[in-house]
């Protein structure tokens, strides 16, 4: 390779920084959705680089479903404080009052109320016209056709048939009042790329990604962690200690763990290189029905 070549990771990094800057240049009031996972952490690092030495020109926002792993919340607060970023936490209070939980209303309804609806509330409340998300095109089939600048109407809806053509690195961010854009700076990254970047940059991640003895129950072939006492156990069901880790992090009752011995970053990368299953396998909600992600996105999910 000649001295004037960028490696694939450097190219992805440059592309993401270009996208982040383009949003700040084109929009009045952007926000970065911060879901605490590895993708959010990679995206945060890219944003810090894009605007250095200036501070982030937008706040971070976490939509808290109240069923996140305790370790995630602790990690979130520590990162925001250490890095000096403005952090907004949004909880759908109506949902809380109505007692919505994955156990009371089912996983789909809980996600809809506490995540999709909550997100729309927060965006409307603050009047954000652009929201960064850490989603990647390799995650799921309907994401493969998502634009980097994904247009949403004033009801936050996505219309897969009516997307703007996106060519070169020219991003059309023009919106009318009330309309917005969801932006995905990691569109062209894969799960492997994200882990390699975390490795290269020494980015901290929630310890749940690394294997450890944790209390779990087996439900439908998936290991679910008993993170607090809100989780009702089935008759005869008792948590057992297993060495598990998570490939993806969401709400603890909706996120399956995998049995693993990968207790540090290089072991995680090696495990993934040899793996034969995708990361979203652990996401209970995606497999509810065919095209379920597409359906959620149409309704305003990220």
């Amino acid at each position: 390779m000649s001295q004037y070549n960028l490696s694939h990771l450097e190219q992805l990094e440059a592309e993401s920084i270009h996208i982040l800057r383009e949003v700040v240049a084109q929009f009045q009031k952007p926000v970065m959705l911060f879901s605490i996972g590895k993708d959010s952490m990679a995206m945060l690092r890219l944003a810090e680089k894009a605007f250095a030495p200036a501070k982030l020109p937008f706040p971070l926002m976490h939509v808290d479903t109240t069923f996140k792993f305790k370790e995630m919340i602790a990690f979130r607060d520590r990162i925001a404080k250490e890095r000096g970023h403005e952090l907004i936490t949004w909880i759908n209070q109506e949902g809380v009052k109505a007692g919505v939980s994955p156990f009371s209303v089912g996983t789909q309804r809980h996600t809809h109320v506490m995540k999709t609806e909550a997100l729309k509330q927060a965006l409307d409340h603050y009047g954000f016209d652009a929201a960064f998300g850490g989603a990647r095109r390799d995650e799921e089939k309907s994401r493969a056709k998502e634009r980097v600048f994904s247009f949403r109407d004033r009801f936050h809806q996505w219309d897969p048939k009516n997307q703007r053509p996106e060519l070169w690195s020219l991003y059309n961010g023009r919106v009318a009042k009330g309309e917005s854009i969801r932006v995905f700076p990691l569109s062209n990254w894969t799960e492997l790329d994200v882990w390699l970047y975390i490795h290269r940059e020494g980015i901290p991640v929630v310890p749940l990604y690394f294997a450890k003895e944790r209390p779990v129950v087996n439900r439908g072939g998936t290991w679910i962690m008993v993170d607090d006492d809100r989780m009702p156990l089935e008759p005869g069901e008792a948590p057992q200690m297993r060495k598990v880790r998570f490939r993806t992090l969401g709400c603890y009752p909706l996120t399956g763990a995998v049995e693993s011995d990968a207790s540090n970053l290089t072991e995680v990368i090696e495990e993934m290189l040899r793996s034969r299953s995708s990361e979203r396998q652990g996401r209970v909600i995606d497999y509810d029905e065919a095209g379920s992600m597409e359906q959620k996105k149409r309704e305003g999910y990220f």
Partner: peptide, 26 residues
Amino acid sequence: DGLQAEREQGITIDVAYRYFSTPKRK
């Protein structure tokens, strides 16, 4: 064929992006 409508109609309507890597290139 990513989108539900396309799967049902058996046609690819939009540009879809796919990723793979080998030890040499992404």
